[in-house]
């Protein structure tokens, strides 16, 4: 009887494990092997061990610039998204349940359409004679039209808009879980709204903020559609470069090496961000206890 109870969970998990192995682990192992193969011509590689792809990757600063640009844009985008999403999430978290559900759905709605539709919409608005320049010119804020397409600013605008829902959803959940009586207690003891926010709301919402930031940061790092459309081929980031190398050029060994090293960077970044966040959380709680 006891033996059956041990086997049952394994049997129940077996389909998921098999799918995971075939869909994720096996291609990943293949990717590792492929990164050590020799590129002959487009879409054709020779299965001989070589380090040439990694030597090319580490010896040429051009590829490091792509990594650095991707990382920099992701950090800036995540921070701006966080700053914009926080007040929205705070407002939604205080709404009555029915309204809260409706507004949360509305916030998440752009995600249903996918990144392509959003990026195409932004492209039309960011064109030299698009809506953004039109509004800024007509209001007299700018004298000459600004260039958004093919610039990092344009990509950032698109990324921030795309990921506000991703940041907001965990924040809404986290802020909504804070007991409202804590706020009342703080106020009744004479704390100002600012002090209540920094000493009660912010520390308690950190788990949601961290989840949102990690999700958004990772999504930013691997974004392909928005930089491709709004970058117009001028701004290479990780996603657009890997697509170009793998699909247009057909250099699968190098694109594998480029992706694997980036994966390593992402892993280290995720670990570091998690460690830093835990440290901040601990220091806040310690400060509050003191």
């Amino acid at each position: 009887m006891e033996r059956r109870s041990k086997i049952t969970p394994i049997l129940l998990l077996a389909p998921a494990i098999l799918i995971f192995v075939f869909i994720f682990v096996a291609p990943f192992i293949y990717l590792i092997f492929q990164s050590f193969w020799h590129y002959e011509t487009s879409y054709v590689s020779k299965q001989v061990f070589t380090l040439e792809n990694y030597i090319k990757l580490f010896s040429d600063p051009y590829y490091w610039r792509i990594y650095w640009r991707t990382f920099r844009l992701s950090v800036i985008s995540t921070l701006i998204t966080m700053i914009l999403a926080y007040p929205i999430s705070r407002m939604i978290s205080r709404m009555p349940p029915g309204k809260k559900g409706l507004v949360t759905t509305l916030i998440a709605l752009p995600m249903i359409g996918g990144g392509m539709i959003q990026a195409m919409g932004w492209m039309t608005m960011m064109m030299p004679y698009g809506a953004i320049n039109g509004i800024l010119l007509s209001l007299g804020i700018i004298k000459e039209k600004m260039t958004f397409l093919g610039t990092e600013t344009g990509i950032l605008i698109g990324l921030v808009q795309s990921f506000i829902p991703l940041m907001s959803l965990p924040l809404i959940a986290s802020l909504g879980a804070i007991d409202p009586t804590l706020e009342d207690a703080s106020k009744s003891l004479g704390a100002s709204p600012l002090r209540t926010f920094f000493e009660i709301i912010l520390p308690l919402s950190i788990p949601g903020a961290v989840s949102g930031m990690v999700l958004t940061f990772m999504a930013n790092l691997t974004m392909y559609v928005t930089p491709s459309i709004l970058g117009q081929g001028k701004i290479q980031v990780f996603g657009s470069f890997v697509y170009q190398q793998a699909i247009s050029v057909g250099n699968w060994p190098f694109s594998s090496a480029f992706s694997l090293f980036f994966l390593l960077i992402m892993g280290v970044t995720a670990f570091l961000s998690s460690w830093i966040t835990k440290s901040i959380q601990k220091s806040i709680y310690k400060g509050n206890e003191a």
Partner: peptide, 15 residues
């Protein structure tokens, strides 16, 4: 193609 695309990325695409 690999060499041509690399050169295009560096010499033409980037301002």
């Amino acid at each position: 193609r690999d060499e041509i695309v690399e050169r295009f990325n560096r010499e033409i695409a980037e301002d």
